[in-house]
Design a protein around this nucleic acid. Structure first.
Length: 850
RNA sequence: GCCGGAGUGGCGGAACGGCAGACGCAGCCGACUUAAAAUCGGCAGCCCGCAAGGGCGUGAGGGUUCGACUCCCUCCUCCGGUACCA
């Protein structure tokens, strides 16, 4: 019941006090299990809404709210449309920050993490978010990571996991990194910022390159274009040819070793004047002439440290040394010198290139520096004899080959295909495709992760841990303080095992898994977090996934979002799921930055604590403010100015709902309808405003335009205020408008709307039912149309007048009315329009004169 | 360099090719108050003008169109990604 008190001679309603409303409803919703999803419900349409689970860094900061609030509003919006919405939450609980914080504070990472999770659970609840807590997943739980290990064993069996030694990116603090975890021009670690080095290590990989082509296919996915582009670029598919050059015989080498190169420009093969091997290329040692050994050896040593030495120069001068060997160009038999140079990467293509300086900028720079011949073999029409001033790489229409033996004069693209065909017929080459994408390196030399479940036995080699022995538990009492070695290797009890195959002494793998393994399948586990015997409940997975809508930041474009796709495909290939893709629709919200415009982080000291804000304004205000700030995909620096305006809006909603007849002494027109409006016109105008708002707001929720959604509701409340205290206040049209206002505001500001809704129902003598289970209202299209409308009139594209006409006005009549308007006549100054444009069904008139 | 995204009042930001600046913040004026806060109403892009009114305005310059913040071309600035990928 509305409580009122007499004060100063006028009626005053109880103040809007979120602190007394919000915890009460949160408790009630939890008690009623309002957001617990019945996953087995077959009646209603299912909607799986997923938001990227948080890393339990301790406090939830305003950035988490920025991600979660609109997601929660989407969930509520869908529920009000009769859908069975599943919105789970969990914690990405393994990872380096926990381990580092634990080291720093001398506390066990598990304790640190679990304490943080408790705090975050409390904070998430204080937002009024409708997570289904029964589905919670914590990845550091042995009952979760045992399935990481199980997956790993299945992938091993299927040939999708393998161990190999190669040069890996290595951070002195964090150990091995996947390639996408190395950032920036200076190649620093994504977590600690330290310089990343190269090391030769035996590590575990997942064979995700199997899926390169499939990953390029986004058909059927509603994903933001920029993410698709980023993944496409990351995968980096290049079409071209593989060409085999034989090595020439020389005093130190019998020759004949095939050197395979990848090129995207087979049409330039006649322009190859030298060849370059990457320092890591296996044939470097074999091909080096005895008198070149010292110099080549020195160069290789230097190249190994290159990333540290010259890291800052992007367009660094080319370096390299000749091996003293030659290769034979398969198309013309020409002998060309072989170099080793670090501008050729060992990890891309074949680790060797044919250098065509005339048509490649890097080769050109190298040739210039080492005085090697530069031979033009492609020319745009008329350029055949023009000397080159740099590499000619552009493609011009009508390009033809020159100086290319039998191919001279042919169109370049055609000649390229012909050359590949010729090479193929002689077994000296073939069309080929190369990718930039590498296999996923999952080994990590850290403590706080899922142990990789393999055992090394001197007799049996690599032995998988038997499935019945899973999980391989992470021991608690390990000295996890880093010193460059694997913490698990220091735990004798963990390390030493008997070989499951021969029973002899053996050692466990001491690496743990990349935490992106955890996040590559967590949304499947949400559906059956307690399930024993299998990682997923197949029946539920088939019904509920792929996820209908995923929300989260774009910083994971080529990390989590790519891994999750890869993992899903691997799961499919070992028969676990039927789907090809994990997430049907993806939305990337922007990132909220600190006041200083920098990323929020504890170390920068620019973290905004939502607890303080909630204490001051209440959760609804903060939720609404975050949605109102700007477009959700944009983010931006945090600025609290403006919270007051949103809080004021909620106060106004409160006042409108509880005190329609009240008035304020400051309002000169209090109690009077706007001039020229009778009660009927006023009600029609109010209904029109309410239904127009409903239509707009519904569309805004659907398209995630939350800022304009809030703006439209503010407009409606402003309109309502104009009628407050008048004869139509509290009437049918008024109540309908209030009802629409509360229902459409409910997903965004769930507490105040629940409170006002329940009071209104009580006042009408109805039993309680939650606004959040109410049905979304329908637009009454007939109410939207008003009797008259305003038509802007332009003369030569410039606005000259606004003419009010009846809504149903024919174009001819409209033209007549417009030309008769005095201001229009004045603007025309006696001229007769040469043309009258009536745009968009009479929305605007443009008179063209002169 | 390459690939994305973005440039609109003092600020955050609106605007199916059709009234640029909705909504809000900050600001100013007024009402209420002994007063202040809170609340309510109003003004408000810039320039000229007492006003009526006019001119100029969406990073810069061109173009298409009756009409361009919106589409096309060239360029500038900022943000994100990437880094010799042959």
């Amino acid at each position: 019941m509305t409580q009122t008190s007499e004060q100063g001679g006028r009626t005053r309603i109880e103040r809007y006090d979120p602190a007394s409303i919000e915890p009460r409803w949160q408790a009630r919703w939890a008690e009623l299990g309002l957001y617990r999803t019945d996953l087995h419900d077959r009646e209603r349409p299912r909607f799986y809404l997923l938001t990227m689970y948080p890393y339990p860094s301790g406090d939830i900061h305003i950035g988490h709210w920025y991600i979660i609030t609109p997601t929660d509003a989407i969930a509520r919006f869908h529920r009000m449309h009769g859908e069975n919405v599943f919105l789970p939450i969990g914690f990405d609980a393994f990872g380096l920050p926990a381990e580092n914080a634990a080291i720093k504070n001398n506390i066990n990472p598990r304790d640190w993490t679990m304490r943080n999770i408790d705090n975050m659970r409390r904070q998430l609840r204080s937002m009024g978010a409708t997570f289904d807590w029964d589905s919670e997943v914590v990845t550091a739980d042995p009952e979760y990571y045992r399935w990481n290990q199980w997956f790993f064993l299945q992938f091993l069996k299927a040939g999708l996991a393998y161990r190999t030694t190669s040069a890996v990116d290595w951070c002195p603090n964090d150990g091995t990194l996947a390639r996408e975890q190395v950032e920036g021009v200076d190649r620093h670690c994504w977590r600690c910022g330290a310089k990343v080095e190269k090391r030769d290590l035996a590590q575990w990989y997942l064979k995700v390159t199997n899926y390169a082509d499939e990953l390029l296919d986004f058909s059927g996915l509603q994903w933001p274009e920029p993410i698709k582009t980023q993944q496409t670029n990351w995968i980096g598919r290049s079409e071209g040819a593989e060409v085999v050059f034989e090595t020439a015989s020389s005093p130190h080498h019998p020759g004949g070793s095939p050197l395979r190169v990848f090129t995207t420009r087979p049409d330039t093969l006649f322009g190859a004047t030298f060849m370059v091997l990457a320092p890591e290329h296996p044939l470097v040692a074999e091909l080096t002439a005895p008198d070149r050994l010292a110099e080549v050896g020195a160069y290789l040593a230097q190249a190994a440290n290159r990333t540290e030495i010259d890291r800052l120069s992007t367009d660094r001068e080319k370096t390299g040394v000749a091996l003293g060997a030659e290769a034979i160009n398969p198309v013309n038999g020409e002998r060309i010198p072989i170099f080793v140079a670090d501008y050729v990467l060992g990890s891309y293509g074949t680790g060797a290139i044919m250098a065509v300086p005339a048509h490649d900028e890097r080769d050109y720079a190298f040739a210039e520096k080492f005085g090697l011949p530069i031979r033009r073999v492609v020319a745009a029409p008329g350029d055949e004899d023009r000397p080159l001033e740099g590499a000619y790489v552009a493609h011009a229409a009508g390009e033809r080959l020159v100086d290319s033996g039998p191919y001279s004069g042919q169109a370049a693209d055609e000649a390229g295909r012909a050359i590949v065909a010729e090479l193929a017929s002689r077994g000296a080459g073939k069309a080929a495709v190369t990718y930039r994408l590498r296999d996923w390196l999952v080994s990590r030399q850290r403590y706080w992760g899922a142990p990789i479940p393999v055992i090394y036995c001197d007799r049996d080699g690599i032995v998988p841990v038997p499935e019945e022995d899973l999980p391989v538990r992470l021991p608690d009492a390990v000295d996890y303080r880093g010193s460059g070695e694997n913490p698990l290797g220091r735990d004798e009890a963990f390390l030493n095992v008997t070989c499951p195959r021969c029973g002899g002494p053996a050692r466990r793998e001491t690496d743990t898994m990349d935490t992106f393994v955890d996040s590559s399948w967590y949304w499947f586990r949400y559906l059956s977090p307690e399930k024993a015997g299998a990682p997923i409940e197949r029946a539920l997975v088939d019904e509920w996934t792929p996820v209908d809508q995923y929300t989260g930041g774009s910083e994971h474009a080529v990390m989590h979002l790519l891994y999750a796709r890869e993992w899903t495909k691997m799961m499919r290939d070992i028969g676990l799921v039927a789907q090809d893709e994990p997430f049907k629709r993806l939305f990337n919200q922007g990132q909220i930055l600190g006041l200083d415009g920098e990323r929020m982080s504890k170390s920068r000291g620019n973290v905004v604590d939502p607890d303080d804000l909630v204490a001051r304004y209440g959760a609804d205000t903060i939720r609404l403010f975050l949605m109102f700030m700007g477009p959700w995909d944009q983010g931006g620096p945090w600025s609290p100015t403006g919270i007051g305006g949103v809080h004021r809006f909620l106060n106004r909603v409160w006042t409108l709902a509880l005190d329609p007849h009240g008035s304020d002494p400051g309002d000169k027109d209090a109690g009077h309808l706007p001039e020229g409006q009778g009660a009927a016109e006023a009600e029609a105008a109010l209904r029109s405003a309410a239904h127009r708002t409903l239509r707009g707001v519904t569309a805004d929720y659907e398209s995630f335009h939350f800022n304009t959604m809030v703006a439209k509701l503010m407009e409606l409340s402003n309109t309502l205020f104009r009628y407050r205290g008048t004869e139509i206040a509290g009437g049918a049209a008024w109540n309908e408008a209030i009802r629409i206002l509360l229902l459409t505001l409910a997903p965004a500001a769930p507490h105040i709307t629940e409170e006002l809704w329940s009071r209104a129902r009580a006042a009408r003598g109805e039993t309680w039912s939650s606004i959040h289970t109410a049905t979304w209202p329908d637009v009454d299209a007939s109410a939207v149309v008003e009797a008259t409308r305003e038509v802007p009139v332009q003369v030569n594209g410039k606005l000259r007048d606004l003419v009010v006409v009846p809504t149903e006005t024919s174009d001819a009549e409209l033209e007549r009315l417009v030309l008769a308007a005095p201001k229009v006549a004045a603007a025309l100054a006696g001229r007769t329009p040469r043309r009258v444009v009536i745009a968009g069904g009479g929305r605007l008139v443009n008179l063209v004169v002169g």
